[in-house]
Simulated scan of single mutants.
Amino acid sequence: MKLTFQGKNSTPGDSPTLYASDRDTYVIQGWKVYANDLLMRLDVPAGHTVIEVPTELFEHLTKDGRLSGELKRYDAPVMLVTEQGTCVLQGPEMRDTDALAQMHMPDYETCIEVPKSSIVALLEEAGGPDHFRSA
């Protein structure tokens, strides 16, 4: 798998990062979620993991040809939005060794791979009631 760097939102020691892949997916690198109160609210299937990233990370979608990176709705893979303005995402944990070799990832981070369509759909206004979920 070949990754194309889209952008990152970093502070010293932290590096949530967004990549586009050559498989029509996004690879999202974020902080591993260990908080039991958050994990207990989710149904995490085998092979999936939960990460947290700043919502601003999605602004980098403009580098992949999107008009905006502003999330208009919060559906899977975004499972929760915290009071701190971060998104809790759930998805298949990245296991591709070639892709992982292209990344710099501290031990307390991991990444998920999700279809581009699932992220792009979040950029569109939702029809009907607001399904905003917060942590």
Rank of each mutant, 00 (worst) to 15 (best):
residue 34 Y to W: 15
residue 131 H to N: 08
residue 113 E to W: 05
residue 112 I to E: 00
residue 103 M to F: 07
residue 102 Q to M: 13
residue 99 A to I: 03
residue 68 S to K: 09
residue 71 L to P: 01
residue 110 T to Y: 03
residue 33 V to A: 03
residue 45 P to W: 06
residue 109 E to Y: 08
residue 22 D to T: 13
residue 133 R to N: 07
residue 9 N to Q: 15
residue 50 V to C: 02
residue 101 A to Q: 11
residue 49 T to W: 06
residue 87 C to S: 10
residue 55 T to M: 09
residue 94 M to F: 08
residue 98 D to C: 05
residue 38 L to M: 14
residue 135 A to H: 14
residue 72 K to G: 04
residue 93 E to C: 04
residue 133 R to A: 05
residue 3 L to W: 08
residue 43 D to W: 06
residue 27 V to P: 00
residue 121 A to K: 07
residue 93 E to S: 08
residue 57 L to I: 02
residue 85 G to C: 04
residue 42 L to H: 07
residue 78 V to D: 02
residue 18 L to T: 05
residue 123 L to C: 06
residue 21 S to P: 08
residue 92 P to Y: 05
residue 126 A to G: 09
residue 24 D to E: 15
residue 93 E to D: 07
residue 65 G to R: 06
residue 94 M to W: 10
residue 126 A to T: 12
residue 103 M to R: 02
residue 129 P to F: 00
residue 125 E to N: 13
residue 13 G to S: 09
residue 60 H to G: 03
residue 130 D to W: 01
residue 11 T to E: 12
residue 116 K to N: 01
residue 36 N to P: 11
residue 11 T to P: 01
residue 128 G to A: 06
residue 93 E to Q: 15
residue 53 V to K: 00
residue 43 D to M: 10
residue 42 L to N: 05
residue 88 V to C: 04
residue 20 A to G: 13
residue 133 R to L: 05
residue 36 N to M: 14
residue 20 A to Y: 01
residue 134 S to F: 11
residue 7 G to D: 00
residue 32 K to H: 09
residue 98 D to H: 11
residue 76 A to L: 14
residue 96 D to W: 09
residue 60 H to F: 10
residue 128 G to W: 03
residue 108 Y to Q: 07
residue 64 D to L: 03
residue 71 L to Q: 02
residue 59 E to Q: 13
residue 135 A to W: 13
residue 69 G to M: 08
residue 89 L to D: 01
residue 1 M to F: 04
residue 103 M to W: 03
residue 39 L to H: 12
residue 50 V to H: 01
residue 82 T to L: 11
residue 107 D to N: 12
residue 16 P to Y: 02
residue 15 S to D: 11
residue 90 Q to E: 12
residue 45 P to D: 09
residue 125 E to W: 02
residue 106 P to Y: 04
residue 79 M to Q: 11
residue 102 Q to R: 08
